[in-house]
Design a protein around this nucleic acid. Structure first.
Lengths: 364, 364
DNA sequence: AGTTTGGGTGAATCCGAAG
DNA sequence: CCTTCGGATTCACCCAAAC
């Protein structure tokens, strides 16, 4: 069993724990988990049967674990698991919860009431939803996920560049088009019936985990079901902890995850932003003689400033760092001096950022 | 002034009432309104300023009416207007409320707590949202509407065939793609500044009213603003009642609605949704398991690259998008990665573009 | 007269390491 | 805890002006 450094208590990594998730989480060490993905019962409140136009019966979610007598009972249930989840979450950890209009408003309000800080609500737009057979409402074609940090101001993980890369190099939006889980991905029991009524597509978890975790992170799923979270976590080189009350689900999940192979760690490495690059002080360029004291730098609009020996700039009416002088030149609140200034070599203008690239290349 | 049959009290139809919506609704006869459309303050809780990468400042919603000290204060506000709204609603009436993740969960929970019965939550997917300028979260590209009847079992209005016809004769889904309100539709004040910070597009109200009201119905908007609800209601031959606390907004709304003419035909404009083939990010193939992280792609001349978990490629000497790596392989300025790369299945090479065709077929 | 280019802007909970 | 400051960060669409 893998152990983490937090506390003396071992974390049961890459296992499925059978039982009530509140009790189990309360026995876990606090602040030990990087991400929680929760797919709690939706409290669907279905009355009676539903039949398709061809009279076939819709296989509805009528399991005992989805029945609550009142909204108050559902709220108590929500409060309890969410509080236990918050305890085991690291200070900079985050949570995802998925739901439908039956429960998601109560879930979202509970998150806010408990001090979680909502980062985005995300719409899972189903490309192939079940139609509304009676024509009495709009086709319920989406579910909602809430992404929240443990508290306001926490330094949550967000692989901005990676999800931007996944989306053809434009920012990932809050609406995700993903098919529902069908076909060979949908797990069946011995009789051929679906093993779990609300199995989530792996594509959904893939995006969640790539966006908001790093390889080696610990992902906890307190309503593990057939283990989609665990399967995707394993493939992506994350550790998981699964909890479920139903032994039948856990059994299916265990087999499923055993068949998953972890991807090569080289391909799990994800596109990093410039923030991950080491900081290079401008003064180094002068120290190294890449720029001379007294050398003139040019702005895009041909304003000039002179390089001083300490790596600051001096212009006609101001002096300071490359950023400060650039901002002053433009009357702007801030300025990236690296991309703003150029110097002249053999008659052509060269951005000073080229020099920073050289230094960074040497550092590798 | 038009009168309704309910009670002896006249309904102030097609007027804008200035003042607090709770007081005004409480003076109205009960059970007298067919539909309520509410666009309450969102309680955005914005902190400091935000600048775009070009250093221009974002014109944020910082109006006094959007400031609440605590969630509890916002909940009281919500409870009060929602209760007054429920009283004036006919037994078979319905309500729409729009919001963002800042407030919609509290709104939805309040609706349920007061006995409203949620029929659908609807996602307004903005085709042109404001980006996330700092790259710290997902682009907030949608808002949420909740559609609820006055109580469970009520016989609400839903024009199933009409909205189906609006949607190319397939069932209308719960996610609606509509542009934000800009251009000539966006109302400006004398100085050219926007007359209201959160004006909603008429296309949104058009769909709401066509779907859930009949001609001659009474539509109440307790947060009338610049009167989008009134303008669309008038055009569609519905009566409206608008309430707002701000005289400046009411003045703009009055002029606006005076210029609207009631449509004589039932010609329903269709929301513009041209767009050629939808763009499919390569990362989706990985998410969906059509390609595995680590899988090898082949160029026409049998060079290879590996797929990474975020949908980028890694080759011996470079990494990036399918297009970037393809271009680097060929020493070309650009490259269409979709037609350049193939993968191997059962011994034969298949262009990855085949997979894109599959996804596009699903999206229809 | 068309076409291209450049500027403006939209309900936004939008930085973080170093000292 | 604070303050300071380096420097990273944007998409779709409309409109006006230039060509």
């Amino acid at each position: 069993m893998k152990r983490t450094k937090t506390e003396g208590t071992p974390l049961p990594l890459n296992q499925i724990l059978l039982g009530d998730c509140v009790e189990i989480m309360n026995r876990m060490p606090e602040a030990s988990v990087d991400l929680i993905f929760a797919d709690p019962p939706y409290n669907l409140q279905l009355r009676g049967d539903l039949h398709r136009p061809d009279n076939s019966k819709v296989d509805a979610v009528d399991d005992h674990w989805d029945r609550f007598d009142t909204f108050a009972a559902y709220d108590r249930f929500t409060h309890d698991w969410m509080k236990a989840a918050r305890r085991v979450l690291k200070p900079n950890g985050a949570i995802w919860v998925i739901g439908s209009y039956h429960n998601i408003f109560r879930v979202g309000a509970a998150l806010q009431d408990q001090g979680y800080w909502i980062l985005n609500d995300v719409v899972w737009r189903k490309s192939n939803p079940m139609p509304n057979f009676r024509g009495k409402r709009l086709t319920n074609a989406h579910e909602t996920l809430i992404w929240a940090s443990k508290s306001e101001g926490a330094k949550y993980t967000f692989n901005y560049e990676a999800v931007k890369a996944m989306n053809d190099d434009v920012q990932m939006r809050s609406d995700w088009v993903i098919p529902i889980c069908t076909g060979h991905e949908r797990l069946k029991d011995a009789t051929g019936a679906k093993a779990h009524p609300t199995q989530k597509p792996e594509a959904l978890l893939h995006r969640v985990l790539v966006a908001t975790t790093n390889p080696g992170d610990v992902v906890l799923d307190p309503f593990f079901g057939t283990g989609t979270t665990g399967a995707v976590a394993k493939r992506l080189g994350r550790d998981f902890i699964g909890i479920d009350r139903e032994a039948a689900y856990a059994e299916v999940a265990e087999k499923r995850i055993a068949n998953v192979r972890k991807a090569n760690s080289e391909v799990l490495e994800v596109t990093k932003g410039k923030r991950a690059e080491p900081r290079v002080p401008f003064g180094q360029l002068v120290e190294r003689g890449m720029l001379q004291p007294g050398e003139v730098l040019f702005s895009p609009r041909n304003k000039t400033a002179k390089v001083r020996a300490d790596g600051t700039l001096i212009a006609s009416d101001c002096k300071g760092s490359i950023h400060q002088v650039g901002a002053a030149m433009e009357g702007a609140p801030s300025c990236n001096g690296w991309t703003y200034w150029s110097y002249r070599r053999d008659g052509i203008m060269v951005p000073i950022d080229v020099l920073r690239q050289q230094i960074r290349a040497e550092m590798k």
